[in-house]
């Protein structure tokens, strides 16, 4: 069964739901809604010396949003606030233009098919915005 957007890699990410759940004693937490579609994510993060040691989220959302949250659960540990901010900028650029990604952010390539659908950009970006917001708190 083919789909332009719902390619196997995105579906597998969403299915895996990396980092699902919430941390009991987070250093930062956020809850964001996408008012256009009702997607909602609650996200918690733990830090050690400015570096993410754990991130957990509860995501009630579409498949694209769940895939993005899962990618964060898989790849955010070990990164710091500055790197997450840069990654978010790279994702926004990818969605806006479908330009090639810098090598450091190749993991985002999975979302390239979404670039042609502006109404869905917010779905992919919501978990990243939630992570940035949680990181801004400590």
């Amino acid at each position: 069964m083919s789909s332009t957007v719902y390619q196997q890699a995105i579906k597998e990410l969403a299915e895996a739901a990396h980092g699902s759940g919430l941390l009991e004693h987070p250093d930062g937490a956020s809850r964001l809604d996408n008012p256009l579609c009702g997607d909602r994510i609650s996200l918690t993060v733990q830090l050690d010396g400015g570096v993410i040691t754990a991130v957990r989220h509860e995501t009630r959302a579409c498949l694209l949003c769940r895939a993005a949250a899962s990618l964060i659960g898989l790849t955010a540990p070990g990164k710091n606030r500055k790197e997450i901010a840069e990654e978010t900028v790279a994702l926004e650029a990818l969605l806006a233009s479908s330009h090639a990604l810098p090598a450091a952010w190749k993991e985002l390539e999975v979302f390239a098919p979404v670039s042609g659908y502006p109404s869905r950009h917010g779905c992919v970006l919501l978990p990243f915005k939630a992570l940035n917001e949680a990181l801004a708190q400590p």
Partner: peptide
């Protein structure tokens, strides 16, 4: 999720709306 349903049908030129 309704947006996923709408997206797949949109790829087949069926125009729907999803959400609240």
């Amino acid at each position: 999720h309704p947006h996923d349903v709408c997206q797949v049908l949109g790829e087949r030129e069926v125009a729907l709306r999803g959400g609240h």
